[in-house]
């Protein structure tokens, strides 16, 4: 099945196949990002700005702030998790573990 993703309620959460999966208010650890000067950004997700899915891989750009240095902005593309192409079931990444944002969206059709 084709994975259907949207950000909803003004970017409050990401829906994957009509199920609420990823929320704002989590802290994400971002490594090797241009987001701020910190070696590892301690990033508070405040709103999902863009989402996309390709081959089950769900990605988003998130608005928020590094709570270590205070820098505000929108991240590059981050993997949120993967949806099983057969069942549609979503497995989220763990925000608190370390993520590397990617400047390019992989393949993907935008939302």
């Amino acid at each position: 099945m084709v994975t259907s993703v949207h950000q909803l309620d003004d970017g409050a959460w990401v829906s994957v196949n009509d199920s609420r999966e990823v929320n704002v208010s989590d802290l994400w650890q971002l490594a090797r990002s241009d987001f701020c000067g910190c070696e590892q950004a301690d990033f508070l997700a405040e709103g999902f700005v863009e989402v996309s899915a390709a081959a089950g891989r769900v990605e988003a750009r998130i608005a928020g702030r590094c709570i270590a240095c205070g820098e505000e902005g929108v991240t590059d593309w981050l993997e949120l998790g993967r949806a099983d192409p057969e069942s549609g079931e979503f497995r989220s990444v763990v925000p608190e573990s370390v993520h590397v944002p990617d400047r390019r969206r992989r393949l993907a059709t935008p939302e």
């Binding site: 949207h6 959460w13 829906s15 199920s19 609420r20 929320n23």
Partner: peptide
């Protein structure tokens, strides 16, 4: 319908109904 939740909840708002947050589906 399970695959129409997002669409319907968006429409429900017009009638003053806003779904509560995750954990309160």
């Amino acid at each position: 319908p399970e695959d129409e939740h997002d669409a319907w909840f968006e429409r429900f708002k017009w009638w003053g109904l806003y779904h509560q947050r995750k954990g309160q589906e």
